[in-house]
Structure formats: C-alpha cells, structure tokens
Amino acid sequence: MAATLRWQTGAVTYYPGRAVVDLDAIAANVGRLRECAPTAQLMAVVKGDAYGHGLVPAARAALRGGADWLGAAQLPEALALRAAGITAPVLTWLYGPGAPLADVLRAGIDISAPAPWALAEIAAAARVTGTTARLHLKVDTGLGRGGSFLDTWTEMLHESLRLEAEGLVRLVGVWSHLARADEDGQPGVSDQIAVFDEAVRRAEAAGARVEVRHLANSAGTIAVPQAHYDLVRPGIAVYGLSPMPQTHPSPQVGLTPAMRVEADLHVVKGAEAGQGVSYGHTYVTSALTTLATVPLGYADGIPRRASNAAPVQVAGRQVRIAGRVCMDQFVLDVGDLPVAAGEKAVLFGSGSQGEPTAQDWADAVGGISYEIVTQIGPRVPRVYRGTGA
C-alpha cells in the first residue's frame, strides 16, 4: 500500500513509509478507559498531534468512543480543534506571557492558570473580548513542574473569585498532575492526593462552585481509583499503550495500540560474510546473507538508539536492525528470508500479527512508548483506517 503525502507546497508526493492509524482502536480504548473510571467524566488528551496519531482524526475517534472532553497542551492545538468544527469541551494549559488568550476565549476553550501572571493575562483577555473565561486553577501537588504550590495557589484562588464577581472568569476547575502514579504502591501518590484534597477544601471553603476536580493521568485512570474525582485525563492509554508496561501491560488492561509503522523495502541484495553494514561498520555479517534496506531514518523519527537493537518484522519474522540508523534509512540482515524490494517491513504495530510493538521498541532503545510514537515525523504520512477514516 503506497502512501501519499501533501507537502506544504501543495504537491502530492509518494512516500515509501507510512503510519497506519486505527481509529476504531482509539475509540475502543476510550471505551475501556471509561470502564476503568466509571464515575468520572473522561478527557482524552490529544496533545502532541494526538501523540503522533493526528490531532483531528484522533480527537474525533476519541469522542466517538465516549470522551466527554479533549485536552490540548498548546494553544494552537486547541484552536485547531475548534477550527475543525469540534464543539466538545476543550481544555488548554501550556503558554507563556503574551500568548493570544483572547483567541482562546473567543473560541470557547477552557484555559488553565498555572501562576499569578497567567491569571492576570486571562482577566485582561476577558476584558478585551467581553467573554467570561472558563478557568481551571492548577495546583502543584508535588510534581514540581506546572502549577503553583499551595500557598500561592490559595492567593490565586481568592483573586479568581474576585474576578468571578466582576464577571471576568468562571472558576470551573481545580486540577493537578501526578508524578509517580506509574510506580506501583508509590507513597508519593497518596501525598499528592492529600495536597489536592486540601486545595479542593480551600476552594469550597472560599465559596467556589467548581464543576470538575481532576488529577488522574493514564496511570491514575488505570490504577489509582481514589484519584478519579470528577474527571480523568488519560493520554498515552487512549492510543493503546500502557504507562505501566511491566505491571499493567496493554493487553491485560484491554488496550489496543492504534499505530502501525511500516515501509516498503528499498534495496535487497546478497552479501558475503564479513561485510560491514552502515556507518562505522558497527555490524558485520557473520555468514553469506541478504541485506534489506528500509527507507526510513532518524529524519522520520526512527531513534538512532535503535541501531543494532530494535526489532522489525519482515516476511513474517522479526529481525533486528543491523548497524546504525541513518537519516533516511536503515538496514536489516534478513538471512535466508525470501524477500524482495517493495515488500513490507513492519517496525511496530499492535502485535496482533506477530509484529513488534512500540513498547518493544521502547524496551530495545531504553526509552518509553510515548517517545516512540510521538517522534514519528511529519513527513511520514498518516493513513487512517476504521469508522470515521
């Protein structure tokens, strides 16, 4: 199956590799995650171009699967959802001073305030647009990243309520993010829940009428029911990959990986024993064999760390990359497998047909499945399968 890619110039150009995205798998994963948190609403996080799967198609599939909300870290992602005609509730949270918050408010997108300066800029945008901002206040409960620690957050709470009295904001959400929910039995999770509960208590005591309290990421959704509150925010799990592959592997949870990356073999040729392969000759053939070149490389998001490590399926068998991954290609030593140019090599997929998974690649390179799927580059076409494609 050859794929086409529309470059920014508008020309349609052939490309020898593709990322095939199963939209039905995304919808089914959302349904399964709803079962994990049956008393909470569900926000499907579609940041990072839906973890590399394609922002708008993945968002629509998630909504079809029962997602109540969409989460988009960057403002342009949230605005792109609205531009595509998606009307579901959307939360966005990552921006710097001077960001176009007026555009966000006009589009009816919920906005997070992580710090006092952001709260002031949200209020200013509300004045300019004549729109009441739907505000979520982010408290840092222990991750040490986004949001404000409890004392500063409490000051922001009272300022938010003052702005609410002016009609500039409506405080609809209190939220935070877990640091170690993917570690079984980690006491830090309970500590963060305690801080979050205190933030909620302070909000209620101050008279806030909060609609949603939300804390749980993918790991929290799957394994920490006490963190579910009113809304859960799974990200990687929406795309069928578990954040806890050792203790809660995807098949055990009932998740199906939605992305399959494949390419058409380029050059297939015989090689003698002792032939060095790719830059630096870090791989040398040990016997008479066949070398097959796959026309994808680190410019396509194939990790260079996959050199001599990551598995690829060809002719129904898994073999490992031979030698270094180059910018546009890498090589497989396929031994005596009957392969020819144009045949398909599968880098990773759901595993249902014996192919490696993104988690297998993560294990091979010493990384996480998140980076494997999100790093597949924009020049690799996304080909959609399933209802809604």
Rank of each mutant, 00 (worst) to 15 (best):
T87P: 04
A61V: 11
G85C: 14
V56F: 04
T92E: 12
V56W: 04
L63E: 00
V56E: 11
L55P: 04
E77C: 08
R64A: 13
R64G: 06
R82A: 06
R82N: 11
L75H: 04
A78E: 12
I86K: 05
A78Y: 10
G65N: 02
W93E: 07
G98W: 10
L79C: 13
A62M: 05
T92F: 07
R82L: 08
L55S: 06
A72R: 01
L91V: 15
A88E: 04
A78L: 14
V56N: 06
A58I: 04
P89I: 05
A88F: 01
G98K: 13
L91S: 08
E77L: 07
T92R: 06
P97V: 11
Y95T: 12
E77D: 14
P76G: 08
A88I: 02
Y95E: 09
E77T: 12
W69T: 02
W69D: 01
G66V: 02
V56L: 07
L91E: 14
A72H: 08
A78N: 13
A62E: 04
L70E: 03
A80V: 14
P57Q: 05
L94H: 15
E77R: 03
V90M: 08
A59M: 06
Q74P: 05
V56C: 08
A88G: 07
R82W: 11
A73C: 11
A83C: 07
T92W: 10
A67N: 01
A78H: 11
D68G: 00
G66S: 02
G96P: 09
A80I: 13
R60K: 14
P97Y: 10
L81R: 02
L81F: 12
L94Y: 14
W69G: 00
A62L: 05
R60D: 07
G66R: 00
A78R: 09
P89Q: 08
G85V: 10
Q74V: 11
P57G: 00
T87N: 08
A88N: 06
L63D: 00
L55D: 10
A67F: 00
G96Q: 15
A83Y: 02
R82I: 13
T92I: 09
P57C: 03
A58W: 02
A61C: 02
V56G: 06
G85W: 13
G66T: 03
L81N: 03
R64K: 05
R64E: 05
Y95C: 11
A58T: 08
R60F: 04
T87C: 06
E77S: 10
A61M: 03
A73D: 10
G65R: 00
L81C: 12
L75R: 03
A80H: 09
I86D: 09
R82Q: 12
Y95G: 09
T87Y: 01
Y95L: 13
Q74C: 10
A78T: 13
V90G: 03
W93V: 14
P89L: 09
W93D: 09
A88L: 06
P89T: 08
R82M: 12
G98L: 14
L91K: 04
G98H: 12
R60M: 07
A67G: 01
A83H: 09
L91A: 06
A67E: 00
